[in-house]
């Protein structure tokens, strides 16, 4: 007892750890565990049948493909957006900065309805794109747009502080030593923001994978084409098939976990690599 008390320099470990564990259990661990327990009560063969059904497999595919594309788009544009907001001064900069958070605050269904209205072939943007032969609403492109919308703040907000804290001396030094702009970006700036970018990418991806509210409105929900996995979960629930819904949810959870795990591993690898 005495020894361990000496170890902790900062007071309040006991109570803060207690609060952490309680909240984590109530909000994350117990619900997740109930998902597993619920699914395990349905028997492996039924579970397997449910999660490998042709239509369900198509659902994962659509969800993963669109979420990945959206996360890549977010990563690219997120960096540019963060760059503009940190490095340049221009009128209404604060206003623009505030807008980034809007997708967090807006109920996703509202976003979905607004985007659909805009991008359907009778909508303002969709009409224009339709003349170029591009159909956005009710296609996978529509799904990706909705996912980009809800994911962009994750990337911008994780990169912004890193860019703000960056010491410009290194860039200046590189410039003096004759490095070109591209080289400065890829050798000096990019390695600095890479950990934040990976985190942002992972968050945006995980969020897009689970997104339901905005996507259902713009997706068209056609089986095998634009039907996302979360919609299949809702469909099962609507049939009062709690086990089936649980099974698909569990697979989605596994996907999300694997993705976040891979990203964290990559992060650790890079950290070691750069420190050596």
């Amino acid at each position: 007892m005495r020894r361990s008390r000496k170890k902790q320099v900062i007071p309040g470990f006991g109570i803060s750890m207690g609060v952490t564990l309680t909240l984590l259990s109530l909000i994350v661990l117990i619900p997740m565990a109930s998902l597993v327990i619920n699914a395990s009560s349905m028997g492996f063969s039924t579970f397997w049948e449910t999660v490998t059904d042709k239509r369900v497999l198509a659902g994962y595919y659509v969800s993963l493909l669109c979420a990945l594309t959206a996360a890549v788009v977010n990563a690219v544009f997120g960096v540019i957006l963060a760059w503009v907001l940190v490095r340049y001064d221009f009128p209404f900069k604060r206003f623009l900065d505030g807008l980034i958070e809007l997708p967090f605050a807006l109920p996703t269904a509202v976003a979905g309805i607004a985007l659909t209205n805009l991008y359907s072939d009778k909508g303002m943007l969709g009409h224009f794109l339709g003349q170029l032969g591009i159909k956005v609403a009710y296609t996978r492109i529509g799904i990706i747009i909705a996912m980009v919308f809800i994911g962009i703040p994750f990337v911008v907000r994780t990169i912004q502080p890193v860019l703000e804290d960056m010491d410009s001396q290194y860039e200046e030094a590189a410039d003096v030593l004759g490095a070109g702009r591209a080289r400065i970006f890829f050798r000096i700036i990019f390695p600095e923001i890479r950990p934040a970018l990976l985190t942002g990418f992972g968050l945006a991806l995980a969020r897009a994978l689970g997104e339901y509210g905005s996507v259902v409105f713009i997706a068209g929900n056609m089986p095998f084409k634009t039907e996302i996995a979360p919609l299949l979960i809702m469909g099962k629930l609507e049939q009062f098939d709690y086990h089936g819904a649980n099974a698909i949810a569990l697979v989605m959870l596994a996907f999300a976990f694997l993705i976040l795990f891979a990203i964290n591993s990559l992060q650790i690898y890079y950290n070691k690599f750069t420190k050596q």
Partner: peptide
Amino acid sequence: MKRKNLITLGIV
């Protein structure tokens, strides 16, 4: 240490 944690958890 462990016991203290448990007590805190209980209180919370």
